Amino acid sequence: MCTGVIMISDLTEKVLRSNIIYRGRILNLRVDTVELPDGRTAKREIVEHTGAVIIVPVKQDGQLLLVRQYRSATGRTALELPAGNIEPGEELESAALRELQEETGYKAKELVRLCSFFSTPGFSDEELHLFFASGLTLLNQNLDDDEFVEVLTVPWENAIQMIWSGEICDAASVAGILAVDSYMKNRL
């Protein structure tokens, strides 16, 4: 045991005050004043988000569908899995099927929920729900008015290599592709 390390069994922070400083279309920003486990106070800046679904759509021939779009936050065009926000009251599976068709134009015959995880728990409550989609049928792409998305088909092994080369670099897509890679290997 290191000297000088204090072991605290309850790490819970008690919220003393909460103040929403921004309300937006897809997120809110609040500042909480919290009481720390040792009794001191601190500020926490929290991004509130309704959550999102991420879909890993794999065609019958093993090709992965990806979307390419410009991301203002990074100032770059990104190669990502189809994903999107969950509407208030919407079931997760319905959100996943809706986002898959909106962004790629495909409908899934089979949808498997694999896991859920927090995107960045240090400052956001956004929870992401990961789905594996197969049995794909092409219908019509139905993008939002402010969305410009290009759909790409990539061989599965190329997608894995694109993670390691940095071509696919958003956390949700990396986690999703690697999770489905493990899921598919364990199914065989």
Rank of each mutant, 00 (worst) to 15 (best):
I168T: 07
L81F: 09
V112Q: 08
L139V: 14
W164E: 15
T137I: 11
A159Y: 10
D125N: 14
D146K: 13
E157R: 05
R76Y: 06
L79R: 09
S116M: 06
S124K: 05
N158P: 08
T77Y: 13
N85V: 12
K107I: 11
E91V: 10
V112R: 13
L138T: 02
A73C: 02
Y106E: 04
E91T: 02
I160L: 15
N142V: 13
E110L: 14
D144F: 07
E99M: 08
G135A: 05
P121L: 06
E147F: 12
S116N: 03
P82A: 12
L81Q: 01
R71T: 03
R113N: 06
L138K: 12
L128A: 00
F123V: 08
F148C: 15
R113H: 10
I168V: 13
A96E: 01
D146V: 10
E93T: 11
G105D: 11
T120G: 06
P82V: 08
S124E: 09
A73F: 02
L111C: 04
L100E: 05
L97Y: 03
H129T: 01
F132R: 07
R113T: 02
T137A: 13
G122Q: 15
A95E: 06
D145I: 10
G105S: 12
I163M: 11
S134L: 13
G122R: 12
R68M: 13
E80S: 13
E150I: 14
I163A: 04
A159L: 15
N142Y: 07
E99A: 07
L152N: 00
F123W: 10
V154L: 09
S116R: 07
V151Q: 02
L100R: 06
E93P: 10
C169A: 15
R76T: 09
C115W: 03
G166E: 00
V154P: 09
S134R: 15
L128Q: 00
A95L: 04
L81S: 03
E90R: 09
L81C: 05
D144R: 12
N85H: 11
S94P: 07
E99S: 06
L79D: 10
I160Y: 03
D170F: 01
R71G: 09
A96D: 03
L79W: 12
A73S: 06
